[in-house]
């Protein structure tokens, strides 16, 4: 995550301010924190919102955004099919309205997620057993393919053949499953 102040260095400090039970968080780098630390603590709580952060992540400061009307309308036009949240509303809120937002904003999301998660764009973790569907099998297949490649390089052809058969049977299983559903 980049520093909210300079937008240059990675943010390493998180300032949390609570005013009347309202929590505000500001991500800063060491340099800006030292420069501005005191002013942040005394500033109006509303001066830093998630909006500034998200807009900053998209390299559109709120001011620039107003100047560039075309981009604004473009963002207004992208709307979630499920909850009807527009992309600009999402930026303003810093929160999604429903699970379909991810689908509707799929094209716009990667740059945001990349900045929020140190360049990562694709989930690598747990997959739910029921809803996850064929992801488990797909992951297993790609693991086996890697193994297969290694075995072929080492000229372990007998073992490679077993792995190849495993991949084939997994792929067949997936095709059959798809056939049943359609």
């Amino acid at each position: 995550m980049l520093c909210q102040e300079c937008q240059e260095r990675p943010a390493t400090l998180l300032f949390t301010k609570v005013v009347d039970g309202k929590k505000t968080e500001v991500h800063l780098c060491q340099v800006c924190a030292q420069d501005k630390g005191d002013t942040f603590l005394s500033n109006d709580a509303s001066s830093f919102s998630f909006n500034n952060l998200l807009a900053g992540l998209l390299n559109i400061s709120p001011v620039v955004q107003q100047a560039k009307q075309p981009q604004q309308t473009e963002h207004d036009q992208v709307r979630c099919d499920g909850c009807h949240l527009t992309f600009s509303q999402f930026l303003k809120l810093g929160k999604f309205g429903c699970s379909q937002c991810y689908e509707s904003f799929r094209a716009q999301l990667p740059p945001i997620l990349k900045r929020l998660h140190s360049g990562n764009k694709v989930h690598q973790g747990k997959v739910p057993a029921r809803v996850g569907g064929t992801i488990h099998v797909k992951r297993k297949i790609s693991e086996l393919r890697l193994e297969l490649k290694g075995l072929i390089e080492q000229e372990e052809f007998e073992q490679a053949a077993t792995i190849r058969d495993q991949i084939r049977s997994l792929e067949k299983g997936m095709r059959e499953q798809r056939g049943e559903h359609s």
């Binding site: 929020l116 998660h117 690598q124 739910p128 057993a129």
Partner: peptide, 27 residues
Amino acid sequence: DVLEAQFDYAFDEKFGYLTTCPTNVGT
């Protein structure tokens, strides 16, 4: 796991578990 067996989670192959805030998405 116990809850997932009963409750239909919002999950996407690419984005992982879908959360309200983009800072939590994935795991």
